[in-house]
Design a protein around this nucleic acid. Structure first.
Lengths: 182, 182
DNA sequence: GATGTAGTCTTTAGCTTCGAACTTTATCTT
DNA sequence: AAGATAAAGTTCGAAGCTAAAGACTACATC
């Protein structure tokens, strides 16, 4: 379970109509964008989960592999750095690393120059898993976007990064309004 | 914690560059769109979480309220219907309803015409909570999209629903490819 | 060099979820 | 009717998460 496939969910247009019925002062166009974004993301995560599952790892483990690989050679990071990157508590990171060490995806060693620190390092097996997952993911992503023209891709990318900048550089105040930080 | 704010995360462009370095056959434009989508969604969920938290409910409870309100008067649904809608197991639904009954957001009653069934019904307090949350959310969403022109909003909505249709009407096969169902 | 303080993990307790087994009620078959 | 089958929720045990407390190391200050 925990499919989040959205089976039995109303169509997007039905949902917008219901919103309009229950909450009048709502811009349907805004709501459509927001709802589509959220749904699209959930469906994509389900797809990623199926792919990583087929490789015998979880999405959670895939994220750790991703952080390590993207950090570049020699593929090492400390647990707290990883935790911050993934938005986890240090406690959760400890346990996740435990599982991944047991699965042979990473190794854990004490930093000899500073014995408080721990070094998590990607194993060759872990790197290979990530590559396999990436191969599947990139095929899926290409297929997903295949109907979009080059112009549409360009606009979509630009608009999304603009929105991203807005949430990142602004924080909602108590009333929920976004106020610029800089 | 569990902020998922992405503190200490590389910028989007740095991340794309790292992908290129570690995995050559990747279309940077595709990856930019996908990464932006995912990040944007995480940041938005954090914002929603702050807002619902300020109202004394969790995002999880907010989702149940949403499903009930959108179902329309008389705001009633069965646990399994709710579970399917939210992508939860029946077990998780049972517990979530327990908590919401305790919090006065919904009531639980046996259906007298079919005593296997249970009816979860929104309380006036629950409906009011949802309205408050919606007021905050709609302000946030308007602010988020404020820099987009009408034309851009229209294109964005159209493109996103097209992508959504593609994931919904197609399922990735074992190799990860999306194959049309109809 | 003893003591305090800060930083980095790990441990513990409690919560939410999933998967699977179980209970209760309705329905179908004969 | 009687018994099998199906459907709807709940209960149970394990996994993974958070928050808070604890343990250990490094470093500053006296």
């Amino acid at each position: 379970m925990a499919d989040t496939t959205g089976a039995g969910e109303p169509t997007l247009d039905e949902q917008i109509a219901a919103y309009q019925r229950e909450f009048q002062d709502l811009d349907p166009q805004v709501e459509k964008i927001v709802s589509a974004l959220s749904r699209l993301n959930r469906r994509m995560n389900v797809a990623y989960g199926r792919q990583t599952g087929a490789l015998g790892i979880s999405n959670a483990e895939w994220e750790v592999l991703k952080a390590l690989v993207l950090s570049g050679v020699p593929y090492r990071m400390g647990p707290s750095e990883l935790a911050k990157r993934l938005g986890l508590t240090p406690a959760a990171m400890t346990h996740r690393i435990d599982r991944m060490v047991a699965g042979g995806l990473v190794t854990r060693a004490r930093d000899e120059s500073n014995r408080v620190r721990v070094i998590v390092e990607l194993t060759p097996e872990g790197r290979e898993k990530w590559l396999e997952a990436m191969r599947l993911a990139s095929v899926f992503e290409e297929d997903l976007l295949q109907d979009l023209s080059l112009a549409e891709r360009s606009v979509l990318g630009e608009v999304l990064t603009r929105l991203l900048r807005r949430v990142e550089h602004a924080q909602p105040d108590a009333g929920g309004r976004l106020t610029d930080l800089d």
